[in-house]
Amino acid sequence: MRKQAWAVEVKELTIRFGDFTAVDNISFAVKPGEIFGFLGANGAGKTTTIRTLCGLLVPTSGSARVAGLDFKSGVQALKSKVGYMSQRFTLYNDLTISENMAFAASLRKLKPGVLQSRTRELFKFVEFDYPVKTLVKNLPGGIKQQLSLAASLLHNPEIVFLDEPTAGVSPVIRNKFWALIRKLARAGKTMFVTTHYLQEAEECNRIALMREGRIIALDTPQRLKTQAFPEPLIEINPEVGGSRQWVEKLKLDPRIGCIQPYGRRYHVLIQNQAGWKKVARTMPKSLKTRPIQPSLEDVFIRLVEGGRT
């Protein structure tokens, strides 16, 4: 059956709070074992959508099937098939690691024996090696995130929703975290991730881009880039300081479409290839230029900002 093939299937989903439409008629589908990125500006409706798919909010209209279940048969069955790691830290700071896990397990009605073996297995899987008697409040931020993830995986869900799982963690932990997400996806779990770090969004199989409650783009990172940027993109890399005046000048140049700061570099959108060549010749040597592939951040800015009035 084709319908069973989707891990998440959303059709014309709308969620309103009072007269505010948080999610506006969106439709998409996620394959099992896929890493699905959910991007958008603050307040675009990402978290609302995730909460609905976890059965925490009731859709105003439209339908959603998660793990083959629709909400009409009750959300209880659904909850045993999804794991949710919230944006906000949801473990108890004044409990130890093992107490937190035991509590999470009791909510899922896991048997103590199952909890033991499952915790051991999970901690090994996420390479978590802190003493289980440690109070959670004494753990560093990144470790807490790992523990949250482990807690959300305790009942072996088919689909895991991660809402900004890597906010504020160090690059080292971030890399580790994404290695874990890939590992889980290879193990057949569907990973549904939101993030503001667009670099890490490159790791997703497919990305949905939300703006003001709607999905404005949905594709693989690569195809999103080529679709959003048919024109060439040039990176300017100022090797020494004092490039600002030049950039200000370029901003006013009619031959150049758009110039965006990117770290200490700049990305320049070329609308007129011949014109750009002329401009480039006048630039000082210290400004190194090279044609580049657009990054997801370029795509994000272009698509999200492009639609703003």
Binding site: A41, N42, L198, P261, F300, I301, V304
Partner: peptide, 16 residues
């Protein structure tokens, strides 16, 4: 102190 934490890429740009 972390003025751009949890802020989307566009708002971050404006902030900068």
């Amino acid at each position: 102190d972390e003025p751009t934490n949890g802020v989307d890429p566009i708002s971050r740009r404006e902030f900068w």
